[in-house]
Amino acid sequence: MRFRPCIDIHNGKVKQIVGGSLMDVGNQAKENFISDKDGGYYAGLYKDHGLKGGHIILLNPAGSEYYEEDVRQAELALKAYPGGLQIGGGINAENAPRFLKMGATHVIVTSYVFKDGRIQYENLEALKEAVGKEHLVLDLSCRKKDGRYYVVTDRWQKFTDVVLNLEVLDELSEYCDEFLIHAVDVEGKASGIEQELVKLLGTWNRIPITYAGGVRSEEDLSLLKKLGKGQIDVTIGSALDLFGGTMKFENVLSYCDSII
């Protein structure tokens, strides 16, 4: 289990938010932490610690007045750590190559692929053609409804008809290099991991999976490692001391044995 760091950008600032609170209208979100440091600072820190495979997420939609400032923050991060970070948020087949040229190793995509509530295979093929399977991460962030986990899109505001199960993981793994999966119902709440989801993911191991959501302690990391059978990577946001939380960055690195 490796630690995958994150840089979440909203309204031009590095932030940590409660995932389910994000709204396009008014660019609003319930904020846990707003940093006075820019994206380049965090990327440099991750580079200094030898961490790879972390993700930058642009939380404003492309039409937002803040989107270009989000992109500027992302550029600072990618210049500080070229070849060390992935990026997601408003990615499509047309703009994906731009972010790889900035220095991202992968683009992370949800809404472009899961449009109108279902998998858009034409868009998925277009992405694969534009950047290659080896540079594509599919974000299968999900919320629970009627006892099942459904992929959610549009900054986690809309449910799709796609149930996250082993068959879907098998199918979509043919198109991408990794999966990123936020447990949206606990994201940003430091309330404990989504155990049922982690158990599901722990039974599947064809390509790397990074889990995010609810981690608040080393006990949660131990549980994640156990339920995920040691093969699921983890990212931590609001609970980390870098973002105002109580979990020490260095202790998390030591526990996860994350340096590649």
Score class of each variant (00 low, 15 high):
Phe3Arg: 07
Cys6Tyr: 01
Asp8Leu: 03
Asp8Cys: 08
Lys13Gln: 13
Val14Ser: 07
Val14Lys: 01
Val18Phe: 05
Gly20Ser: 15
Gln28Trp: 13
Gln28Asn: 14
Ser35Thr: 06
Lys37Trp: 03
Lys37Cys: 04
Lys37Tyr: 10
Gly40Trp: 05
Tyr41Trp: 14
Tyr41Gln: 07
Leu51Pro: 10
His55Thr: 09
Ile56Met: 00
Pro61Met: 00
Ser64Gln: 02
Ser64Arg: 02
Glu65Met: 11
Tyr66Ile: 02
Tyr67Leu: 02
Glu68Ile: 01
Gln73Asn: 05
Ala74Ser: 13
Ala77Glu: 07
Leu78Pro: 05
Leu78Phe: 00
Gly83Arg: 04
Gly84Met: 06
Leu85Thr: 04
Leu85Gln: 04
Ile87Thr: 08
Glu94Tyr: 07
Ala96Leu: 01
Leu100Thr: 06
Met102Arg: 06
Ala104Leu: 09
His106Gly: 01
Val109His: 02
Val109Ser: 09
Asp116His: 14
Asp116Cys: 00
Gly117Thr: 05
Arg118Trp: 02
Asn123Lys: 09
Asn123Tyr: 05
Leu127Val: 05
Leu127Trp: 00
Ala130Leu: 04
Gly132Ile: 01
His135Leu: 00
Leu138Gly: 07
Arg143Ser: 12
Asp146Ser: 14
Tyr150Phe: 15
Tyr150His: 13
Val151Glu: 12
Val151Phe: 03
Val152Pro: 10
Arg155Thr: 11
Asp161Glu: 15
Asn165Tyr: 08
Leu166Arg: 15
Leu169Trp: 06
Leu169Tyr: 05
Asp170Met: 03
Glu174Ser: 13
Tyr175Val: 01
Asp177Pro: 03
Glu187Gly: 12
Gly188Leu: 08
Lys189Pro: 08
Ser191Trp: 05
Gly192Gln: 10
Glu194Arg: 05
Leu200Pro: 07
Leu201Val: 09
Trp204His: 12
Ile209Arg: 03
Thr210Gly: 06
Val215Ser: 06
Leu223Glu: 15
Leu224Met: 14
Gln231Glu: 12
Val234Asn: 10
Gly237Asp: 11
Ala239Leu: 11
Leu240Asp: 11
Asp241Gln: 03
Asp241Thr: 11
Leu242Trp: 07
Thr246Glu: 13
Asn251Pro: 01
Leu253Ser: 08
Tyr255Asp: 04
